[in-house]
């Protein structure tokens, strides 16, 4: 019955659908009417400052937190009404590292495989193949407490794939890893994506990571979707193609107005002595800038011209880089201190 139903079930258009998804904790709106769709085989990135609601969104889509309102669907199945089926078709790497430290890599994976009722032969094959894929085959029988953070993350990624999910959720998979481990996690994810027809939803604070891995990126702030597009288009959407960072020996009155009137300039922001000039054409603006400075006898102390990065996109959409405001401690940080549910 269940089998024939799933056979006759037409492949839905999207791997993941969020329709006005909302989560309210008390009177705090953590996720505010978020809607988006993710296509099959897509890598979808969620960016946003701390406390933006990324983890909460992922928890709703992975059946961990019931939405206050709105709907979520994974491969066409509702995350509330068909939670059981959804759980079978997803793999999840939570933000916190959740391997059992006392158990070996194989034991960790084997226990999860058993939770999915995967028969023994297949279990062995899958585990061996996945440990190979994450380069942990030689450490298979070592206790996880001897693993580095990067190895642990890779093990968790392997563990999350043990049930051969259709959609893979990763909450900050590379936070806390050194640059080498991060790159190796990226390579692994890229490889896995190519090999399996896997849809990936990941959150990250690293713009280079999102730029490299994601087909599309959603920027979330205060629980709301503020931008959603491919990295390339997002970069194109912020004013200017280049950012000129420049500081001067002295700053004459009305200097900002002068800078704004230079050719091709889209926007000027001043922070202390440093000016960030967004420009549609970096080299033209720079040449004009040097002329303007020389004409009023201002020396240029430092100058650099960069292409727009996702960092600029992020700052553009969320306002500033650091968000320091008093609010309920975020679930991830406070987990070991206190959490009321």
């Amino acid at each position: 019955m269940a089998v024939s139903a799933s056979l006759s079930f037409p492949r839905p258009d999207y791997a993941v659908e969020a329709e006005e998804l909302t989560k309210v904790f008390g009177d705090f709106v953590a996720v505010d009417r978020l809607s988006f769709t993710v296509g099959h085989g897509e890598v979808f990135g969620l960016l946003g400052p701390n406390g933006a609601g990324k983890s909460t969104l992922i928890r709703m889509l992975t059946t961990l937190v019931p939405p206050t309102s709105g709907r979520g669907r994974i491969v066409g199945r509702d995350v509330v009404a068909s939670a059981k089926e959804v759980r079978r078709s997803i793999g999840v790497i939570p933000q916190a590292m959740t391997s059992d430290l006392d158990l070996s890599a194989v034991e960790n994976m084997s226990i999860f495989a058993k939770l999915y009722n995967i028969p023994r032969d297949r279990r062995r094959k899958i585990i061996a193949r996945l440990l190979e894929a994450v380069d942990l085959a030689q450490w298979a029988d070592k206790p996880v407490k001897m693993f580095s953070g990067g190895m642990r993350r890779r093990l968790e990624i392997a563990r999350g794939l043990v049930n051969q999910p259709k959609v893979f959720f990763l909450d900050e998979p590379t936070t806390g890893l050194d640059p080498v481990s991060r790159v190796s996690v990226w390579e692994m994810l890229a490889r896995l994506k190519k090999e399996a027809d896997l849809t990936i939803i990941m959150t990250t604070h690293y713009m280079d990571e999102a730029d490299k891995l994601c087909d599309r990126i959603a920027i979330v702030d205060h629980g709301k979707l503020v931008a959603l597009d491919s990295p390339l288009k997002l970069k194109a959407s912020v004013p200017g193609r280049n950012v000129i960072e420049v500081s001067f020996s002295k700053v004459p009155d009305g200097w900002t107005d002068v800078l704004e009137s230079l050719p091709e300039v889209a926007e000027v922001r001043a922070e202390d002595n440093v000016f960030r000039i967004a420009s549609h054409n970096g080299s033209r603006t720079t040449v004009a800038l040097m002329d303007a400075a020389r004409s009023v006898d201002v020396a240029i102390a430092s100058l650099s011209v960069q292409s727009t990065t996702l960092d600029d996109v992020f700052v553009h959409y969320t306002g500033r880089q650091l968000r320091d405001a008093l609010q309920a401690p975020s679930a991830s940080e406070s987990r070991f201190l206190m959490r009321r549910e």
Binding site: L64, I90, V92, P94, T98, F112, L115, N117
Partner: peptide, 8 residues
């Protein structure tokens, strides 16, 4: 959290 996303 790791267990709750499985079919348990």
């Amino acid at each position: 959290e790791g267990y709750l996303v499985t079919p348990l």
